[in-house]
Write a protein that binds this DNA or RNA. Sequence first.
RNA 1: GCCGCCUUAGCUCAGUCGGUCAGAGCGGUGCUCUCGUAAAGCACAGGUCGUCGGUUCGAUUCCGACAGGCGGCUCCA
Length: 664
Amino acid sequence: MAEPVVVPAGTTAADAVAAAGMPMTGPRAVVVVRDPDGRLRDLSWAPEAEVAVEPVSVDSPDGLNVLRHSTAHVLAQAMQDLHPQAKLGIGPPVENGFYYDFDVPPLHPEDLDKLEARMREIIKSGQRFRRRQFADVAQARAELAGEPYKLDLIDSSGGFEASEVMELGGGGELTVYDNLDPATGEVRWSDLCRGPHLPSTRLIDPRGVKLMRTAAAYWRGSEANPQLQRVYGTAWPTKDGLGSYLRMLEEAARRDHRRLGAELDLFSFPEEIGSGLAVFHPKGGVIRRELEDYSRRRHEDSGYEFVNTPHITKAQLFKTSGHLDWYADGMYPPMQMEGAEYYLKPMNCPFHTLIYRARGRSYRELPLRLFEFGGVYRYEKSGVVHGVTRLRGFTQDDAHIYCTPEQLQDELASLLQFVLDLLRDYGLTEFEAELATRPERFVGKPEEWDVAEAALEQALRRAGLAYRIGEGEGTFYAPKIDVHCRDAIGRSWQLSTMQVDFQTPVRFGLEYQAADGSRQQPYMIHRALFGSIERFFGILTEHYAGAFPAWLAPVQVVGIPIRDDHAGYLSAFVDRLRAERIRAEVDTSGERMQKKIRTAQQQKVPFMAIAGDADVAGGTVSFRYRDGSQRNGVPLDEAVAHVVEVVRSRTNAGPSADLTPEAG
RNA sequence: GCCGCCUUAGCUCAGUCGGUCAGAGCGGUGCUCUCGUAAAGCACAGGUCGUCGGUUCGAUUCCGACAGGCGGCUCCA
């Protein structure tokens, strides 16, 4: 945080910042100030009384938002220069960039080039941003008569969350920013906006700006409204800032699980099966099985019992659960059979609940923890299926826990801890949580919701996990905790969910007999850890960029003979590894050694075991690891023990010669 | 579902302003070659240019529908 500067009454923030000797141009330029109330102000702001403000530089989070917001204005000006009929929507900064929505005919990639060229001209002309307040709504309406969407914003401002709409200030204050020609002071362009903005377009480095793509977006986010053309762009204080952002995008593309899934022969989406339905190939199958097996073991250790349930059911089950009332549109349509309607299941919980109800339950059995890798089918809209992370058929690692009211709190706390521990074992270590509370449409009694929400919040506190509240974002039957994880390149993914459900036990009439002989209703907790196995698989693929830890790698060791006649020696070595259940093979293809190394490297095999005359003579192999490091002349016994140790440790790092302690 | 774009060999992509233009690299197969850590050489095989319909003397090339995909929007129990 920068040192505060004092702005004397009647002078501008810019004067004070300049007098303090802070940069006014360049990659660290101060672009706005924060007043004592925390509000960001233009540098041209002149307070009526002396005030201490915090300078905000363009490379700070707030400064970047200002830069991007101002760049969005430049984009809009460029758009209206090139397409005078374009009507303006909204144009806020977003993570890593900005967008602006326009009512124009659909745009094409060439249009972006033209817009960028015009933006560069505007930026170089050094237009000044001037804040101007409308006297009243009538004046604003008159001036914005040609901008129907801006009028819509003004007319419905009462219904807006002010923080979400950059166009409108708080408290009904309406302001406009004029872009002035620096030489003549003429107004070149104006936009309804609450600001703040850069003092001048000169503060934008055109080499740090790039328009990224066009897309359609509904006006004000509602399907009921017309679609506008959205232009996404990004802006950084410097050319290097843009460069490193573009490199990050390339890195993300390099990690794309759809691409890696094909390159590493993990899974595919045969058109014949249908959109959103994946098949896992043998190598993908190995990874899945390892993921699942480890999860199974951990669940068994933690008192879960495994169940199996069918993929289809008569309609009544989902009528009882309430899902048909809420989610019929998201379910595959019913099949008629023997006079009954059958549905593919979109959820496992009603099935597990029937298992609970299959016989009388005693308080001594609780908590009863039922677990299943349950295949579910959801009719996702055609535009949303995405690789393996958004499928129409997928597998939930779904558990339902039935417990007494007294057990609820401890059960939730230990459950959350269990979830976090297990995610760490798969290599995810950064978590954020969200507590999603009662939505507008819900079932049950508000008092019950309050109890459930309080229990979840308590569990979060006990776990010491940072969380935010998602007001009204719970499901229709339960509030929930969602756990989000950050991957290796900082992207956040929503994974685990825990829901406290008081409704399903009522709907299904669940009971247990308490110690005093009375019949009581259990509480129910829904919990998914990966959410979807397939999606988790995809996320891990991107997290590890396809270089899975040794314990998950589909092929753990490839033996590479230097000459063909070393293959037999390596086969014996590989047999010893296989006896230890290591997934090992010898590359006996007709290629030369260098090519085999390249192939194994591209397949991201954790251990290459190379052998030539020297190794055969010495009874050793030479390891090459994925990171290119080497460990040569390792005696066979030691080599087997080394691989076994790395795999069984389930370490998510390496392997690498640099991480391998010299065996003694 | 909505808007825009895309769909040529297993993969990545050239190409046809409608008429011997169906091509390349990688991958695959075969032969030759193999002595130390990211690509040896040669040859061969592979595509009714997503599917169906229309326009046309003639369509992979133009039009339409459908399917699948990509980027967003919306949605995500």
